[in-house]
Design a protein around this nucleic acid. Structure first.
Length: 948
RNA sequence: GGGCUGGUAGCUCAGCUGGUUAGAGCGCGCGCUUGAUAAGCGUGAGGUCGCAGGUUCAAAUCCUGCCCGGCCCA
């Protein structure tokens, strides 16, 4: 009997964009399509001549698979690049890799050990070749992994620090410091790995717990600064007995008070002599007495720090080869946390010590050799060893303790577990020792000041990065750029055998650079020195340095051999973007390198992101089993999910990731995808002629346009400020709350049932078309795969890829604050209606809201005015609404936060239209379309559909 | 141990220079729809704003200490 009108309803058709996204399968297909069309080249083509935006890639290290930190870093870079590109810039992104250095060298050595080969019997260049191959292999792997994340860049021509041109330029950069006098050879304490026989960079050091000897040693006063010290002994405490032979001073805190005590008795401690007088810090007296088991003592004097000045001690081993004086000096680094308040100073074994010694012109002994063995000239201890190659303790400490005991200098000994520096590779404990190393001076040529000034000229995101970098530059010591290893750029230095001075000749440097450009750094080892020295110098007069350049200088020079060398880029970079650890890493060294050679930073802006933590906010680690690999997310959920996670998170802090968090992103993704799908479905047969000028549109449409104008600002501003979290939140809210829950829901009736030529439907579809245009563009930097899929699903636009577009221009006229204010009020009234209907549903009086005909009593004049010319039935999705100015009857439905509105729900009169399901009085009047309302009957007839 | 940084509902985030019952979305519970359906709509319940003090008429917002996390450094 009843007619099936479904075929006359214009339901969305979105087969080309299914909800089942299958991202793990589809994304690789999209990638292939991009490769086939050479998307990156095309993007470059369309942006030719535009202002450049250059995000210079901080090079990841070429070993191992990507982890979540890499994924975060590269996705963030990609989102920003794409955003700037769509903002209208030419954002040419060149990825790069850091290739030299110990980790790779170590890996290759591990292979040697496994094969029983001896590294020392392999020619340097063969070893280096294997390192190069190792790096090459991992670059290839990482390229594929980065591409899978959706990262768009110049993968055809990435940069590497081991390319010949890079190695050559690194030599030239170092040459600038050399010729300018900023590079010098110095002896100063470095953290030295006995196991690897090399100095380590700060970044190569890890702190682990380590059990050390602790000793309390007495230094006899030979020249008292204050009478109370006459004949007394100064007590020091240290965890490194082996530094005692290197002692040259004792330091005290200039802000503390000290005491002299007389020992009366000591229990179970025959190393203390009753009657002797000892000087210690007042605050630490009790602790010292307890540790040294002084059972009875008396404070005989109290001394200010100033009274200590001028005091001189003897070395505790005076008479056995240690005859020099040991001055007692003020030192800011002395703390009252542990020990005695006096710190023994070994200028060769600590930075504080070294600085103090330099300040007071003390000797800086080089007591220990590469193997941590005391040299022949060290009395009593020559030949003893601090650490064995496997990191175990040698015989030095025991011997020193024994000798101190014999000399009556030792007062007490023990052990303490504490944090201690270790090598990141061998995990062996390190020592501080002075070695001849090459340094870039922070002060020659005003490098520190230049760098600090450059920081002030730089924009930091978030701003806190500025202070962080600044404080590091302010306090850092000279930059040690030499390493005693094989895999790196050779230090291009010849040292005059007579003077010990390096040859500072630009021509020599340039000859070295030329050779490296042709053959790479291997040329250094393969060539006769004459090749570099030319005819001007006699090779016999010079020693060729065999050290290599530390890797941070390599990466600090990328701006020179990438940004300056490639005409398609620009110097300085628009932005450097890395994790917050790079304040001491790449940001830091790039700044120093560039400030030293070019007088300014190689970047206009610096952006730092936090670290990826697990769901509970803890560091990811294999041992905790809380590691989430990007490859797994990729194969289970898809890159767009990971990309959503990145932009939904506040990258300025640490980011958490976990199963629940990812599931949340999957849900969010589905919502966004469904929004696109709804647009595509309702625009399936949209023709350009259908478009309606904005001026002829209903207010509801113009309200959507207004919202689009707002979103446009959010997107553009967010891109400029790298604030994607806000973009994401606003976009999502717009899709879920404004569109899906309101606009789409309200306009469903019109889209499905109105005549295609009706103004209302045409206006709506015009807006849907604009929405599609905007949303695909706005989402393109974020969900790059899905935005493209949607773009293609509609048959594509004028551009063959969504990524060739820029953000659509949104006419300023779309903004209408008055309309916004009015429709906010309309929606407030709507909420009261939907609330009332919910009660009706609970009471089972209605199911669909179309069954209702509420009466809305509005006492609030502003709300009444807002609603006056609005079809509330349409907006509330009911079949009818009666608006009344009469006072509401008792029991009418109200909401506390919408005063002045009361709703009395009733059932709609009439019968249900079989086409639009509204309940209307005029259903069934037109025999040509039985059981339909007037609007639908007209639509059906217009369609010319045979009914019945 | 030091510097920097953070700790707001189950989750991701808003809450500006202190001022009514701390917000949003998601998730969850309940209901509707079954013509966005591996969808959509409505609605409800969730928070001692890390803890403890203090300043103030008033603090999630300011101060101090502590606890827990992170980065960097020693």
């Amino acid at each position: 009997m009843s007619v099936d009108y479904k075929s006359t309803v214009f339901l969305p058709r979105a087969d080309s964009f299914p909800m089942r996204a299958r991202l793990p399968q589809r994304e690789p297909e999209t990638l292939r399509a991009w490769e086939d069309m050479d998307l990156f080249a095309k993007v470059r083509e369309v942006s030719e001549g535009r202002e450049k935006y250059i995000l210079h890639d901080g090079p990841p290290y070429a070993n191992g698979h990507l982890h979540m930190g890499h994924a975060l870093n590269k996705i963030l870079k990609d989102v920003i690049n794409r955003g700037m590109q769509m903002l209208g810039y030419d954002a040419h992104y060149v990825p790069g890799w850091d290739c030299h250095g110990l980790p790779i060298e170590w890996k290759v050595e591990e292979g040697y050990r496994a094969q029983g080969r001896d590294k020392d019997k392999v020619p340097v260049t063969e070893f280096r070749r294997e390192c190069r191959e190792f790096a090459d292999k991992w670059i290839g792997i990482q390229i594929e992994e980065f591409k899978r994340l959706g990262v768009l860049g110049n993968w055809e021509k990435p940069y590497t620090t081991m390319s010949y041109d890079a190695e050559a330029q690194i030599v030239r950069e170092l040459g600038k410091f050399l010729v300018g006098g900023g590079l010098y050879r110095g002896a100063r304490p470095v953290l030295w790995s006995v196991a690897e026989k090399t100095a380590l960079a700060d970044a190569e050091v890890e702190y682990h717990d380590h059990t050390s000897h602790t000793i309390w040693v007495r230094f006899p006063v030979v020249q008292a600064g204050a009478p109370a010290l006459d004949g007394a002994r100064i007590l020091i405490w240290t965890t490194t007995p082996w530094t005692i032979p290197g002692n040259r001073a004792v330091a005290f805190s200039p802000n503390s008070t000290y005491v002299v005590i007389q020992v009366k008795a000591a229990g179970e401690n025959d190393l203390v002599v009753p009657g002797e007088r000892l000087a210690v810090a007042k605050d630490l007296l009790e602790q010292v007495a307890h540790d040294a088991k002084l059972t009875d003592y008396e404070v005989v004097a109290e001394l200010s720090a100033a009274e200590l000045e001028g005091t001189v001690c003897a070395h505790p081993l005076r008479g056995q080869g240690y005859e020099f004086d040991v001055p007692v000096l003020p030192g800011d680094f002395v703390t009252m946390e542990q020990g005695t308040g006096f710190v023994h100073v070994g200028p060769g074994h600590g930075t504080d010590d070294w600085l103090l010694a330099r300040k007071h012109g003390l000797e800086i002994p080089e007591n220990v050799d590469d193997d941590s063995v005391f040299r022949d000239n060290v009395p009593l201890f020559a030949g003893t060893r601090i650490y064995k190659p496997d990191g175990k303790e040698g015989d030095a400490n025991a011997r020193i303790i024994e000798v101190l005991k014999g000399a009556g200098a030792l007062m007490q000994q023990g052990r303490q577990r504490h944090s201690y520096p270790h090598s990141w590779r061998s995990k062996a404990p390190l020592i501080h020792r002075v070695t001849p190393q090459w340094f870039i001076s922070m002060d020659t040529n005003g490098l520190r000041d230049k760098a600090l000034a450059a920081i002030d000229e730089t924009d930091f995101y978030p701003p806190a990065g500025k202070a962080r970098l600044r404080s590091m530059i302010e306090t850092r010591p000279d930059w040690c750029v030499s390493r005693q290893r094989w895999w790196g750029v050779p230090l291009p230095l010849f040292v005059d055998r007579k003077t010990g001075e390096p040859l500072r000749d630009p021509a020599v440097i340039e000859r070295i650079a030329q050779a490296f450009e042709q053959e790479g750094g291997d040329a250094w080892f393969d060539s006769d020195p004459k090749r570099f020295l030319g005819d001007d110098y006699d090779p016999a007069d010079y020693e060729q340095v065999r050290d290599i350049v530390e890797v941070w200088f390599d990466s600090g020079s990328t701006h020179a051999f990438v940004l300056e060398a490639r005409p398609e880029l620009k110097w300085p970079a628009s932005l450097y973007l890395e994790g917050s650890d790079q304040h001491r890493g790449w940001f830091h060294t790039s700044l120093l390198e560039s400030a030293g050679t070019r007088g300014r930073a190689p970047f206009d802006g610096v952006l730092t992101h936090g670290f990826v933590l697990d769901a509970k906010g803890h560091k990811m680690s294999k041992s905790l089993g809380n590691v989430i690999a990007p490859q797994d997310v990729m194969s289970e959920k898809g890159a767009d999910i990971l990309r959503l996670w990145v932009v939904a998170s506040d990258y300025s802090e640490d980011l958490r990731i976990g199963e629940e968090i990812l599931r949340y992103q999957v849900d969010a993704y589905r919502r966004l995808r469904n929004t696109l799908r709804y647009l595509i479905g309702n625009l399936a047969d949209f023709a350009g002629e259908e478009r309606l000028p904005e001026s002829e549109m209903p207010e509801l449409e113009r309200w959507v346009l207004h919202r689009m104008a707002e979103l446009d600002s959010v997107v553009r501003e967010g891109c400029r400020r790298y604030d994607y979290m806000t973009i994401y939140r606003e976009l999502y809210h717009f899709c879920a709350v404004d569109l899906s829950a309101f606009y789409f829901d309200v306009r469903k009736d019109s889209l499905y049932c109105d005549r295609p030529d009706s103004t209302r439907r045409r206006a709506c579809r015009t807006v849907l078309d604009k929405l599609f245009d905007c949303l695909t563009a706005w989402l393109a930097p974020i969900t790059c795969f899905t935005a493209e899929e949607a773009w293609w699903a509609r048959g594509g636009g004028p551009e063959e890829s969504v990524h060739l577009r820029t953000f659509p221009e949104v006419p300023a006229g779309w903004r209408d604050a008055g309309l916004q204010a009015k429709w906010d009020k309309v929606r407030r009234v709507r909420r009261v209606v939907t609330g009332a209907l919910e009660l009706e549903r609970a009471e089972k009086r209605i199911g669909s809201s179309l069954q209702a005909h509420p009466t809305v009593h509005i006492a609030d004049s502003e709300l009444a005015e807002a609603v006056a010319d609005v079809d509330l039935a349409e907006i509330c999705i009911t079949s009818a609404v009666t608006v009344s100015g009469e006072p509401a009857p008792a029991g009418a439905f109200t909401l506390d936060d919408v005063p002045g509105v009361a709703v009395v729900p009733e059932l709609a009169e009439g019968s249900k239209c079989q086409r639009c399901w509204q309940v209307l009085p005029d259903v069934g009047r037109d025999a040509a379309a039985p059981d339909t309302c007037g609007r639908c009957a007209d639509a059906v007839k217009h369609l010319g559909v045979a009914v019945g």
